[in-house]
């Protein structure tokens, strides 16, 4: 494993071997309408996969299938080789609407604590773990604040901290930065990259921002709409660690962006 990591020039990145998240022939109908059709997809452990697509193409639905929140109409979704029949505690989901996914009546530390309580951690051990997690996401001085007292970026960090408290093998992120301003968004992109590098988790990241997908991912998948199916798959070989300026100026980055842009245009036509 170490040898491969060295070759990849990144601390983690996709590891060879069995897929951690495996979609095979997944079709999902909701209310008699086909949302996703025949999706087959392997995500390797440690991989950072981004899913893009025009709105309404089923990216979020694909993520919810991976989370076990939906069951496919046909085909299977497997995690570590076992079919996903329900959500798992070691798969964490970061929702886009952080305001709805946090408990407004609990402080920042209370929100992180929710995940620790659910995992059965003894009360005496929680405080130290909460401090550590809040420090990790850059909120060490906001432990006593309620979500309503925090900015959008801080609330999303808090949600990420709660997800990290689950010690997830896989982190599923549904347009997590979609509602944030550009500067906050770039800062959080880099933070997520370093958090992921430190945790070894597999990431599936849904976004409508093409540059964000290329910037973050080891691989980008583009979905075609009505019904959602895989239309393009790009391997991203940009050097890591990524950098907001140099990576985005890299000719390969620009080429990939062009390719995805054309794909989206064609898919909307």
């Amino acid at each position: 494993m170490n040898r491969i990591a060295a070759v990849n020039q990144s601390a983690n990145g996709p590891r060879p071997g069995r897929a951690q998240i495996a979609f095979s022939g997944v079709t999902l109908n909701l209310g008699g309408k086909a949302i996703l059709e025949n999706i087959s997809l392997d995500v390797k452990p440690g991989e950072f996969l981004c899913i893009i697509g025009a709105s309404g193409c089923g990216k979020t639905t694909a993520l919810r299938l991976a989370a076990g929140l939906y069951q496919p109409t046909s085909g299977t979704v497997a995690f570590d080789g076992k079919p996903m029949l329900a959500p798992r505690r070691d798969i964490a989901i970061v929702f886009q609407d952080y305001g709805k996914a946090l408990l407004p009546w609990r402080t920042a530390s209370g929100n992180v604590s929710l995940a620790l309580e659910a995992s059965g951690m003894a009360a005496s051990q929680r405080a130290a773990r909460i401090d550590e997690l809040l420090k990790k996401v850059g909120l060490p001085n906001h432990a006593g604040k309620y979500p309503a007292e925090m900015s959008g970026g801080m609330q999303q960090r808090l949600q990420i901290a709660r997800c990290l408290a689950q010690e997830p093998k896989a982190l599923l992120m549904d347009e997590p930065f979609g509602a944030l301003d550009a500067m906050t968004r770039q800062g959080l992109q880099d933070e997520v990259l370093s958090l992921v590098r430190a945790s070894d988790a597999t990431v599936v990241f849904v976004t409508h921002d093409l540059e964000e997908a290329i910037y973050l991912g080891d691989r980008v998948i583009g979905l075609l709409p009505h019904p959602g199916r895989i239309g393009i798959e790009l391997k991203i070989d940009l050097p890591r660690p990524r950098d907001q300026l140099t990576t985005r100026e890299n000719p390969e980055f620009l080429r990939l962006r062009r390719e995805l842009f054309d794909f989206i245009k064609a898919s909307e036509a």
């Binding site: 798992r88 505690r89 996914a101």
Partner: peptide
């Protein structure tokens, strides 16, 4: 908020915990 029930599901919270930690305070 239905989203909170999804959070509870992914955390595998018990029915009792969902009532007392999510529904009642909400």
């Amino acid at each position: 908020e239905p989203r909170l029930y999804e959070v509870a599901r992914s955390l595998h919270m018990s029915r009792l915990a969902i009532i007392f930690k999510i529904a009642l305070p909400s």
